[in-house]
Design a protein around this nucleic acid. Structure first.
Lengths: 217, 217
DNA sequence: TGTACATCAGTGAACGCGCGTTCACTGATGTAC
DNA sequence: TGTACATCAGTGAACGCGCGTTCACTGATGTAC
Protein backbone atom coordinates (compact mmCIF):
# COMPACT_ATOMS: atom_id res chain seq x y z
CA UNK A 1 0.00 0.00 0.00
CA UNK A 2 1.30 3.44 -0.95
CA UNK A 3 2.02 6.19 1.59
CA UNK A 4 -0.99 8.11 0.35
CA UNK A 5 -3.30 5.11 0.70
CA UNK A 6 -2.01 4.37 4.20
CA UNK A 7 -2.58 7.95 5.32
CA UNK A 8 -6.04 7.98 3.79
CA UNK A 9 -6.96 4.79 5.60
CA UNK A 10 -5.67 6.29 8.83
CA UNK A 11 -7.97 9.31 8.52
CA UNK A 12 -10.80 7.04 7.43
CA UNK A 13 -10.48 4.91 10.55
CA UNK A 14 -9.97 7.99 12.74
CA UNK A 15 -13.38 9.29 11.62
CA UNK A 16 -14.99 5.95 12.47
CA UNK A 17 -13.24 5.83 15.84
CA UNK A 18 -14.26 9.40 16.66
CA UNK A 19 -17.93 8.47 16.23
CA UNK A 20 -17.45 5.40 18.42
CA UNK A 21 -15.80 7.56 21.07
CA UNK A 22 -18.62 10.11 21.06
CA UNK A 23 -21.21 7.33 21.28
CA UNK A 24 -19.25 5.71 24.12
CA UNK A 25 -19.41 9.08 25.89
CA UNK A 26 -23.20 8.85 25.80
CA UNK A 27 -24.08 10.71 22.61
CA UNK A 28 -26.54 9.21 20.14
CA UNK A 29 -25.33 8.66 16.58
CA UNK A 30 -28.19 10.58 14.97
CA UNK A 31 -27.41 13.69 17.00
CA UNK A 32 -23.78 13.83 15.83
CA UNK A 33 -22.88 16.31 13.12
CA UNK A 34 -20.42 15.79 10.32
CA UNK A 35 -18.54 18.89 11.46
CA UNK A 36 -18.31 17.62 15.04
CA UNK A 37 -16.79 14.33 13.93
CA UNK A 38 -14.29 16.03 11.61
CA UNK A 39 -13.38 18.48 14.40
CA UNK A 40 -12.78 15.55 16.78
CA UNK A 41 -10.28 14.06 14.33
CA UNK A 42 -8.65 17.40 13.50
CA UNK A 43 -9.78 17.54 9.88
CA UNK A 44 -11.55 20.31 7.99
CA UNK A 45 -15.27 19.51 7.61
CA UNK A 46 -14.86 19.24 3.86
CA UNK A 47 -12.28 16.47 4.20
CA UNK A 48 -15.09 14.25 5.49
CA UNK A 49 -16.42 13.91 1.94
CA UNK A 50 -13.15 12.28 0.80
CA UNK A 51 -14.14 9.29 2.98
CA UNK A 52 -17.95 9.09 3.19
CA UNK A 53 -20.80 10.66 1.21
CA UNK A 54 -22.59 11.39 4.51
CA UNK A 55 -22.85 10.36 8.18
CA UNK A 56 -25.29 7.59 7.35
CA UNK A 57 -22.69 5.72 5.29
CA UNK A 58 -20.13 6.14 8.06
CA UNK A 59 -22.69 4.61 10.41
CA UNK A 60 -23.19 1.61 8.15
CA UNK A 61 -19.44 0.92 8.00
CA UNK A 62 -19.32 1.24 11.78
CA UNK A 63 -22.06 -1.38 12.11
CA UNK A 64 -19.96 -3.74 9.96
CA UNK A 65 -16.84 -3.23 12.07
CA UNK A 66 -18.59 -3.49 15.43
CA UNK A 67 -20.68 -6.50 14.42
CA UNK A 68 -17.55 -8.28 13.17
CA UNK A 69 -15.97 -7.69 16.57
CA UNK A 70 -19.00 -9.14 18.36
CA UNK A 71 -19.06 -12.15 16.05
CA UNK A 72 -15.43 -12.91 16.84
CA UNK A 73 -16.02 -12.68 20.58
CA UNK A 74 -19.03 -14.99 20.49
CA UNK A 75 -17.16 -17.39 18.20
CA UNK A 76 -14.22 -17.58 20.60
CA UNK A 77 -16.55 -18.06 23.55
CA UNK A 78 -18.37 -20.97 21.94
CA UNK A 79 -15.07 -22.47 20.74
CA UNK A 80 -13.76 -22.34 24.32
CA UNK A 81 -16.94 -23.94 25.63
CA UNK A 82 -16.74 -26.69 23.00
CA UNK A 83 -13.05 -27.52 23.38
CA UNK A 84 -13.07 -27.45 27.16
CA UNK A 85 -16.38 -28.98 28.21
CA UNK A 86 -15.33 -28.85 31.83
CA UNK A 87 -15.86 -25.09 31.58
CA UNK A 88 -18.65 -24.00 33.86
CA UNK A 89 -21.32 -21.42 33.23
CA UNK A 90 -19.38 -19.27 35.69
CA UNK A 91 -16.20 -19.44 33.67
CA UNK A 92 -17.89 -18.77 30.34
CA UNK A 93 -19.58 -15.68 31.75
CA UNK A 94 -16.28 -14.45 33.17
CA UNK A 95 -14.72 -14.79 29.73
CA UNK A 96 -17.69 -12.94 28.26
CA UNK A 97 -17.35 -9.98 30.61
CA UNK A 98 -13.59 -9.91 29.99
CA UNK A 99 -14.31 -9.62 26.27
CA UNK A 100 -16.77 -6.79 26.88
CA UNK A 101 -14.17 -4.96 28.96
CA UNK A 102 -11.56 -5.43 26.25
CA UNK A 103 -13.46 -3.22 23.79
CA UNK A 104 -16.69 -1.69 25.08
CA UNK A 105 -17.35 0.75 22.18
CA UNK A 106 -18.42 -2.02 19.78
CA UNK A 107 -21.05 -3.26 22.26
CA UNK A 108 -22.23 0.23 23.12
CA UNK A 109 -22.69 1.24 19.48
CA UNK A 110 -24.55 -1.91 18.41
CA UNK A 111 -26.82 -2.00 21.46
CA UNK A 112 -27.53 1.74 21.78
CA UNK A 113 -28.18 2.22 18.06
CA UNK A 114 -30.29 -0.97 17.82
CA UNK A 115 -33.30 1.31 18.39
CA UNK A 116 -31.55 4.58 17.51
CA UNK A 117 -32.59 7.46 15.30
CA UNK A 118 -31.00 6.38 11.99
CA UNK A 119 -33.21 3.96 10.05
CA UNK A 120 -30.48 2.51 7.83
CA UNK A 121 -28.18 1.90 10.80
CA UNK A 122 -31.06 0.31 12.69
CA UNK A 123 -31.78 -2.08 9.83
CA UNK A 124 -28.12 -2.96 9.41
CA UNK A 125 -27.82 -3.74 13.12
CA UNK A 126 -30.97 -5.86 13.03
CA UNK A 127 -29.45 -7.86 10.16
CA UNK A 128 -26.20 -8.37 12.07
CA UNK A 129 -27.97 -9.39 15.28
CA UNK A 130 -29.93 -11.95 13.28
CA UNK A 131 -26.60 -13.35 12.05
CA UNK A 132 -25.36 -13.49 15.66
CA UNK A 133 -28.52 -15.39 16.62
CA UNK A 134 -28.04 -17.84 13.73
CA UNK A 135 -24.43 -18.40 14.79
CA UNK A 136 -25.55 -18.90 18.37
CA UNK A 137 -28.20 -21.46 17.35
CA UNK A 138 -25.62 -23.29 15.24
CA UNK A 139 -23.24 -23.39 18.19
CA UNK A 140 -25.99 -24.70 20.47
CA UNK A 141 -26.44 -27.57 18.01
CA UNK A 142 -22.76 -28.51 18.46
CA UNK A 143 -22.77 -28.27 22.24
CA UNK A 144 -23.45 -31.40 24.28
CA UNK A 145 -25.78 -29.68 26.76
CA UNK A 146 -28.16 -28.39 24.07
CA UNK A 147 -27.68 -30.94 21.31
CA UNK A 148 -30.75 -32.97 22.23
CA UNK A 149 -33.00 -29.91 22.42
CA UNK A 150 -35.90 -29.78 19.92
CA UNK A 151 -35.33 -27.35 17.06
CA UNK A 152 -37.97 -24.85 18.20
CA UNK A 153 -36.57 -24.73 21.74
CA UNK A 154 -33.01 -24.29 20.48
CA UNK A 155 -34.03 -21.38 18.27
CA UNK A 156 -35.93 -19.71 21.10
CA UNK A 157 -32.89 -20.23 23.32
CA UNK A 158 -30.58 -18.68 20.72
CA UNK A 159 -32.70 -15.54 20.51
CA UNK A 160 -32.88 -15.40 24.30
CA UNK A 161 -29.12 -15.80 24.82
CA UNK A 162 -28.17 -13.08 22.34
CA UNK A 163 -30.72 -10.79 23.94
CA UNK A 164 -29.38 -11.58 27.40
CA UNK A 165 -25.81 -11.03 26.25
CA UNK A 166 -26.72 -7.53 25.10
CA UNK A 167 -28.28 -6.74 28.45
CA UNK A 168 -25.37 -8.18 30.39
CA UNK A 169 -22.82 -6.29 28.32
CA UNK A 170 -24.56 -2.94 28.63
CA UNK A 171 -25.18 -3.35 32.38
CA UNK A 172 -21.55 -4.37 32.84
CA UNK A 173 -20.17 -1.38 30.93
CA UNK A 174 -22.58 0.86 32.77
CA UNK A 175 -21.16 -0.20 36.12
CA UNK A 176 -17.76 1.20 35.15
CA UNK A 177 -19.22 4.69 35.56
CA UNK A 178 -19.24 4.51 39.36
CA UNK A 179 -16.82 7.03 40.82
CA UNK A 180 -16.08 4.64 43.69
CA UNK A 181 -13.99 1.83 42.23
CA UNK A 182 -14.59 -0.50 45.19
CA UNK A 183 -18.36 0.02 44.85
CA UNK A 184 -18.13 -0.60 41.09
CA UNK A 185 -16.31 -3.89 41.66
CA UNK A 186 -18.93 -5.02 44.17
CA UNK A 187 -21.75 -4.15 41.77
CA UNK A 188 -20.00 -6.05 39.00
CA UNK A 189 -19.66 -9.09 41.21
CA UNK A 190 -23.40 -8.92 41.92
CA UNK A 191 -24.13 -8.64 38.19
CA UNK A 192 -21.84 -11.58 37.46
CA UNK A 193 -23.60 -13.72 40.06
CA UNK A 194 -27.02 -12.67 38.83
CA UNK A 195 -26.21 -13.49 35.22
CA UNK A 196 -24.91 -16.87 36.42
CA UNK A 197 -28.18 -17.47 38.24
CA UNK A 198 -30.14 -16.55 35.11
CA UNK A 199 -28.17 -19.01 33.00
CA UNK A 200 -28.60 -21.70 35.66
CA UNK A 201 -32.36 -21.19 35.67
CA UNK A 202 -32.37 -21.53 31.90
CA UNK A 203 -30.10 -24.55 31.71
CA UNK A 204 -31.87 -26.48 34.42
CA UNK A 205 -35.00 -25.84 32.42
CA UNK A 206 -33.36 -27.19 29.32
CA UNK A 207 -32.14 -30.42 30.91
CA UNK A 208 -35.63 -30.85 32.29
CA UNK A 209 -37.46 -30.14 29.04
CA UNK A 210 -35.35 -32.63 27.07
CA UNK A 211 -36.65 -35.45 29.21
CA UNK A 212 -40.35 -34.80 28.63
CA UNK A 213 -42.46 -32.84 26.11
CA UNK A 214 -43.15 -29.25 27.04
CA UNK A 215 -46.63 -28.53 28.29
CA UNK A 216 -48.36 -25.39 29.51
CA UNK A 217 -46.76 -23.92 32.60
CA UNK B 1 -60.06 23.91 36.53
CA UNK B 2 -60.38 27.20 34.70
CA UNK B 3 -60.66 27.49 30.91
CA UNK B 4 -57.17 28.92 30.78
CA UNK B 5 -55.69 26.08 32.82
CA UNK B 6 -57.48 23.47 30.72
CA UNK B 7 -56.16 24.98 27.47
CA UNK B 8 -52.66 25.20 28.90
CA UNK B 9 -52.76 21.57 29.93
CA UNK B 10 -53.96 20.66 26.45
CA UNK B 11 -50.97 22.35 24.80
CA UNK B 12 -48.68 20.87 27.42
CA UNK B 13 -49.84 17.34 26.66
CA UNK B 14 -49.79 18.05 22.91
CA UNK B 15 -46.07 18.87 23.16
CA UNK B 16 -45.42 15.62 25.03
CA UNK B 17 -47.49 13.63 22.52
CA UNK B 18 -45.70 15.23 19.57
CA UNK B 19 -42.36 14.00 20.89
CA UNK B 20 -43.81 10.51 21.41
CA UNK B 21 -45.13 10.55 17.85
CA UNK B 22 -41.78 11.60 16.37
CA UNK B 23 -39.99 8.91 18.41
CA UNK B 24 -42.58 6.34 17.31
CA UNK B 25 -41.77 7.36 13.72
CA UNK B 26 -38.15 6.31 14.33
CA UNK B 27 -36.53 9.57 15.42
CA UNK B 28 -34.28 9.65 18.47
CA UNK B 29 -35.23 12.03 21.27
CA UNK B 30 -31.83 13.74 21.38
CA UNK B 31 -32.01 14.63 17.69
CA UNK B 32 -35.35 16.44 18.05
CA UNK B 33 -35.32 20.22 18.19
CA UNK B 34 -37.53 22.42 20.31
CA UNK B 35 -38.71 24.18 17.12
CA UNK B 36 -39.60 20.90 15.45
CA UNK B 37 -41.76 19.82 18.38
CA UNK B 38 -43.53 23.20 18.58
CA UNK B 39 -44.10 23.14 14.80
CA UNK B 40 -45.63 19.66 15.07
CA UNK B 41 -48.15 20.98 17.60
CA UNK B 42 -48.82 24.21 15.71
CA UNK B 43 -47.32 26.53 18.29
CA UNK B 44 -44.74 29.26 17.90
CA UNK B 45 -41.32 28.08 19.12
CA UNK B 46 -41.39 30.61 21.93
CA UNK B 47 -44.61 29.13 23.37
CA UNK B 48 -42.57 26.03 24.27
CA UNK B 49 -41.01 27.94 27.17
CA UNK B 50 -44.44 28.44 28.77
CA UNK B 51 -44.44 24.66 29.39
CA UNK B 52 -40.85 23.44 29.77
CA UNK B 53 -37.52 25.17 30.39
CA UNK B 54 -35.95 22.94 27.71
CA UNK B 55 -36.33 19.64 25.83
CA UNK B 56 -34.57 17.74 28.60
CA UNK B 57 -37.33 18.53 31.10
CA UNK B 58 -39.99 17.53 28.57
CA UNK B 59 -38.14 14.23 28.20
CA UNK B 60 -38.17 13.64 31.96
CA UNK B 61 -41.94 14.20 32.16
CA UNK B 62 -42.36 11.83 29.22
CA UNK B 63 -40.41 9.15 31.08
CA UNK B 64 -42.79 9.55 34.03
CA UNK B 65 -45.89 9.22 31.86
CA UNK B 66 -44.61 6.29 29.80
CA UNK B 67 -43.25 4.42 32.83
CA UNK B 68 -46.58 4.87 34.63
CA UNK B 69 -48.31 3.30 31.64
CA UNK B 70 -45.94 0.32 31.67
CA UNK B 71 -46.38 -0.12 35.40
CA UNK B 72 -50.15 -0.28 35.00
CA UNK B 73 -49.90 -2.86 32.22
CA UNK B 74 -47.58 -5.11 34.19
CA UNK B 75 -49.75 -4.70 37.31
CA UNK B 76 -52.88 -5.75 35.41
CA UNK B 77 -51.04 -8.70 33.87
CA UNK B 78 -49.86 -10.00 37.22
CA UNK B 79 -53.29 -9.37 38.77
CA UNK B 80 -54.90 -11.41 35.99
CA UNK B 81 -52.36 -14.19 36.49
CA UNK B 82 -52.97 -14.22 40.25
CA UNK B 83 -56.77 -14.10 40.17
CA UNK B 84 -57.13 -16.64 37.41
CA UNK B 85 -54.42 -19.22 38.06
CA UNK B 86 -55.78 -21.38 35.26
CA UNK B 87 -54.30 -18.79 32.92
CA UNK B 88 -51.58 -20.34 30.84
CA UNK B 89 -48.29 -18.82 29.79
CA UNK B 90 -49.88 -18.60 26.35
CA UNK B 91 -52.77 -16.52 27.58
CA UNK B 92 -50.63 -14.18 29.67
CA UNK B 93 -48.38 -13.51 26.70
CA UNK B 94 -51.39 -12.83 24.48
CA UNK B 95 -52.63 -10.28 27.01
CA UNK B 96 -49.16 -8.75 27.10
CA UNK B 97 -48.99 -8.30 23.34
CA UNK B 98 -52.52 -6.88 23.34
CA UNK B 99 -51.39 -4.29 25.87
CA UNK B 100 -48.37 -3.42 23.72
CA UNK B 101 -50.64 -2.98 20.69
CA UNK B 102 -53.00 -0.76 22.70
CA UNK B 103 -50.36 1.96 23.13
CA UNK B 104 -46.98 1.28 21.48
CA UNK B 105 -45.44 4.80 21.92
CA UNK B 106 -44.87 4.32 25.67
CA UNK B 107 -42.90 1.11 25.03
CA UNK B 108 -40.98 2.60 22.12
CA UNK B 109 -39.91 5.68 24.06
CA UNK B 110 -38.80 3.83 27.20
CA UNK B 111 -36.95 1.10 25.32
CA UNK B 112 -35.36 3.22 22.58
CA UNK B 113 -34.22 5.96 24.96
CA UNK B 114 -32.96 3.45 27.56
CA UNK B 115 -29.56 3.85 25.87
CA UNK B 116 -30.33 7.09 24.05
CA UNK B 117 -28.39 10.33 23.74
CA UNK B 118 -29.85 12.28 26.68
CA UNK B 119 -28.13 11.44 29.99
CA UNK B 120 -30.90 12.66 32.30
CA UNK B 121 -33.58 10.76 30.37
CA UNK B 122 -31.37 7.66 30.42
CA UNK B 123 -30.99 7.84 34.19
CA UNK B 124 -34.71 8.45 34.73
CA UNK B 125 -35.55 5.42 32.58
CA UNK B 126 -33.04 3.27 34.44
CA UNK B 127 -34.70 4.28 37.70
CA UNK B 128 -38.17 3.41 36.37
CA UNK B 129 -37.04 0.07 34.97
CA UNK B 130 -35.60 -0.78 38.37
CA UNK B 131 -39.03 -0.06 39.87
CA UNK B 132 -40.61 -2.34 37.27
CA UNK B 133 -38.15 -5.07 38.20
CA UNK B 134 -38.92 -4.62 41.91
CA UNK B 135 -42.65 -4.83 41.17
CA UNK B 136 -42.06 -7.93 39.09
CA UNK B 137 -40.04 -9.61 41.85
CA UNK B 138 -42.77 -8.75 44.37
CA UNK B 139 -45.40 -10.27 42.07
CA UNK B 140 -43.30 -13.41 41.64
CA UNK B 141 -43.34 -13.76 45.40
CA UNK B 142 -47.16 -13.80 45.37
CA UNK B 143 -47.47 -16.24 42.50
CA UNK B 144 -47.82 -19.94 43.26
CA UNK B 145 -45.40 -21.08 40.55
CA UNK B 146 -42.51 -18.93 41.84
CA UNK B 147 -43.33 -18.66 45.53
CA UNK B 148 -40.97 -21.43 46.59
CA UNK B 149 -38.05 -20.02 44.59
CA UNK B 150 -34.96 -18.95 46.57
CA UNK B 151 -34.63 -15.19 46.86
CA UNK B 152 -31.58 -14.93 44.60
CA UNK B 153 -33.25 -16.94 41.85
CA UNK B 154 -36.45 -14.89 42.07
CA UNK B 155 -34.51 -11.65 41.76
CA UNK B 156 -32.56 -12.94 38.77
CA UNK B 157 -35.84 -14.07 37.22
CA UNK B 158 -37.41 -10.66 37.76
CA UNK B 159 -34.56 -8.91 35.97
CA UNK B 160 -34.74 -11.47 33.20
CA UNK B 161 -38.52 -11.17 32.69
CA UNK B 162 -38.51 -7.36 32.49
CA UNK B 163 -35.64 -7.55 30.04
CA UNK B 164 -37.47 -10.16 27.96
CA UNK B 165 -40.67 -8.09 28.04
CA UNK B 166 -38.80 -5.16 26.53
CA UNK B 167 -37.44 -7.30 23.76
CA UNK B 168 -40.80 -8.92 23.04
CA UNK B 169 -42.58 -5.55 22.96
CA UNK B 170 -40.10 -3.96 20.59
CA UNK B 171 -39.98 -6.96 18.28
CA UNK B 172 -43.79 -7.09 18.28
CA UNK B 173 -44.16 -3.39 17.42
CA UNK B 174 -41.46 -3.72 14.82
CA UNK B 175 -43.44 -6.42 13.01
CA UNK B 176 -46.29 -3.95 12.38
CA UNK B 177 -44.05 -2.21 9.84
CA UNK B 178 -44.45 -4.96 7.25
CA UNK B 179 -46.30 -3.67 4.19
CA UNK B 180 -47.89 -7.09 3.74
CA UNK B 181 -50.46 -7.46 6.51
CA UNK B 182 -50.75 -11.23 6.05
CA UNK B 183 -46.97 -11.59 6.32
CA UNK B 184 -46.95 -9.37 9.42
CA UNK B 185 -49.60 -11.52 11.11
CA UNK B 186 -47.61 -14.67 10.34
CA UNK B 187 -44.43 -13.13 11.76
CA UNK B 188 -46.30 -12.07 14.89
CA UNK B 189 -47.61 -15.57 15.35
CA UNK B 190 -44.06 -16.89 15.11
CA UNK B 191 -42.89 -14.31 17.67
CA UNK B 192 -45.78 -15.23 19.99
CA UNK B 193 -44.88 -18.91 19.79
CA UNK B 194 -41.20 -18.20 20.30
CA UNK B 195 -41.82 -16.05 23.37
CA UNK B 196 -44.02 -18.85 24.71
CA UNK B 197 -41.21 -21.33 24.16
CA UNK B 198 -38.78 -19.03 25.96
CA UNK B 199 -41.07 -18.76 28.97
CA UNK B 200 -41.60 -22.51 28.96
CA UNK B 201 -37.87 -23.12 28.98
CA UNK B 202 -37.54 -20.77 31.92
CA UNK B 203 -40.46 -22.11 33.91
CA UNK B 204 -39.53 -25.72 33.46
CA UNK B 205 -36.13 -24.71 34.75
CA UNK B 206 -37.70 -23.07 37.75
CA UNK B 207 -39.85 -26.04 38.73
CA UNK B 208 -36.75 -28.17 38.39
CA UNK B 209 -34.49 -25.90 40.41
CA UNK B 210 -36.91 -25.72 43.35
CA UNK B 211 -36.61 -29.46 43.90
CA UNK B 212 -32.83 -29.58 44.19
CA UNK B 213 -30.05 -27.03 44.81
CA UNK B 214 -28.61 -25.40 41.71
CA UNK B 215 -25.22 -26.70 40.64
CA UNK B 216 -22.93 -25.82 37.75
CA UNK B 217 -24.48 -26.47 34.37
C1' DT C 1 -74.24 42.51 37.31
C1' DG C 2 -70.78 45.61 35.28
C1' DT C 3 -66.25 47.66 35.28
C1' DA C 4 -61.42 48.20 35.72
C1' DC C 5 -57.25 45.99 36.23
C1' DA C 6 -54.11 41.73 36.49
C1' DT C 7 -52.59 37.53 34.64
C1' DC C 8 -50.39 34.88 31.32
C1' DA C 9 -50.45 31.48 27.02
C1' DG C 10 -49.15 32.46 22.80
C1' DT C 11 -46.87 35.73 19.06
C1' DG C 12 -43.38 37.52 15.82
C1' DA C 13 -39.15 39.89 14.98
C1' DA C 14 -34.51 39.59 15.85
C1' DC C 15 -29.87 37.79 17.35
C1' DG C 16 -25.78 35.05 16.82
C1' DC C 17 -24.32 30.25 15.93
C1' DG C 18 -23.29 25.72 14.03
C1' DC C 19 -24.87 23.13 10.44
C1' DG C 20 -24.30 20.59 5.50
C1' DT C 21 -22.64 21.46 1.20
C1' DT C 22 -20.23 23.95 -2.94
C1' DC C 23 -16.19 25.40 -4.92
C1' DA C 24 -11.63 26.65 -6.44
C1' DC C 25 -7.32 25.85 -4.31
C1' DT C 26 -2.77 23.64 -2.52
C1' DG C 27 0.90 20.73 -2.20
C1' DA C 28 2.57 16.16 -1.18
C1' DT C 29 2.64 11.75 -3.44
C1' DG C 30 2.37 8.74 -7.54
C1' DT C 31 3.51 7.71 -12.36
C1' DA C 32 5.25 7.75 -17.08
C1' DC C 33 9.12 8.52 -19.73
C1' DT D 1 18.24 8.53 -12.14
C1' DG D 2 15.82 12.89 -13.13
C1' DT D 3 11.94 15.45 -14.97
C1' DA D 4 7.35 16.68 -16.14
C1' DC D 5 2.75 15.86 -15.40
C1' DA D 6 -1.37 13.55 -12.94
C1' DT D 7 -3.66 12.38 -8.86
C1' DC D 8 -6.09 13.42 -4.87
C1' DA D 9 -6.43 14.09 0.55
C1' DG D 10 -7.03 18.00 2.77
C1' DT D 11 -8.01 23.36 2.92
C1' DG D 12 -10.62 27.70 3.64
C1' DA D 13 -14.04 30.88 2.15
C1' DA D 14 -18.66 31.22 1.25
C1' DC D 15 -23.73 30.13 0.97
C1' DG D 16 -28.31 29.60 2.83
C1' DC D 17 -30.79 27.35 6.65
C1' DG D 18 -32.68 25.86 11.05
C1' DC D 19 -31.42 26.22 15.57
C1' DG D 20 -32.10 28.07 20.78
C1' DT D 21 -33.07 32.06 23.06
C1' DT D 22 -34.37 37.19 24.06
C1' DC D 23 -37.69 40.55 24.06
C1' DA D 24 -41.61 43.56 23.82
C1' DC D 25 -46.18 42.61 22.41
C1' DT D 26 -51.31 41.00 22.21
C1' DG D 27 -55.59 39.71 23.62
C1' DA D 28 -58.43 36.31 25.89
C1' DT D 29 -59.36 34.90 30.55
C1' DG D 30 -59.43 35.63 35.59
C1' DT D 31 -60.31 38.54 39.60
C1' DA D 32 -61.49 42.27 42.77
C1' DC D 33 -64.79 45.57 43.72
Amino acid sequence: MSIRDARKQQSHQALLDAVLQLCTAGRSFSSLSLREVAREVGLAPTAFYRHFPDMEHLGLELVDQAALHLKKVLYQLSAAALQQPQHTVEHTLQLFFQAVDAYPPAWIFIIAERWGGCALVRQAIEREINFLIEDCIYNLKQHAATQALPCKEREALGHLLIQLAQNWAMSWIHLAQYTDIVEAQQQRLILLEQSQTQLHLLFCGISHSTRQPIISA
